[in-house]
Amino acid sequence: MKIVVLLSAGAHPVSSAPVLPRLEAQALRLALALGETTGLHAGPSAAPAADALGHGLGLLTHLATREGDDPIPALVAALKAETPDLVLAGRRGQGGEETGLAPYAVAAALGVTIVADAVALAPGAAPGSLVVEQALPKGARRRLVVRLPALVTVHPGAPAPGAYAYGVARRGRVDTIWGVAGSAAEPNPIAVEERPYRPRPKLMRSAPGTGSAAERLAAATGGMASSGANVLVQPTPDEAARAILEHLRRIGVLAPAVANKPAA
């Protein structure tokens, strides 16, 4: 299987020094376990993405573009020429706009399927297919069978990146070619005003009442959440068990008694 990993130039979350984003190192690990992998970076300098060589990447193709150019046309042109079976990307960039739109733009231009938030990849039973395990909220997963070619974005829950090794990095190669000169990145289509970030307090699920101390405590502990509770006093254990199971099924945390077929 021919795989291309899209590697961006990220900024370190603490020092903002240019580094390879962790998510893309994770994508690289998934790719290396699956088949023949190359890296692709579009931008003025290959240095940050070249960290990927130390994680086991053999060849990084650097599409040189001018500072401030839109990388999407260059990436799309290179991928059209290469026709890989699978393209991997991070679910969000790191240190840039962090919109996560780049993989969708690439997939739309290539006309391939896009699957988001993969944590595990495996070759499918049928040739030309791929089994993708997607991360869902609350620890659930979804296993998909996808027809190739496809573009898959990687979730932070994927296996941790492989270790960086200097010797391995020395053996890797960076090919720099001129990328398709895209128009200058269109200035953000939404007019934004930037200011230094100030963390915002998270909304409290139950806003504290302005009332007495007892009311504020009740708000903080969710005490007001249930009025008119359904109280069973001294039921027989079997009655209690039935009431609990029925309630759990009604709110949907327990699978129905009869159906054991998996839901999509």
């Binding site: 869902l136 997963r141 979804r142 296993r143 996808v146």
Partner: peptide, 12 residues
């Protein structure tokens, strides 16, 4: 659809 099969795996 390009996704030929989907199966939800409940959290362990």
């Amino acid at each position: 659809p390009a996704i030929t099969d989907a199966r939800r795996i409940p959290a362990d």
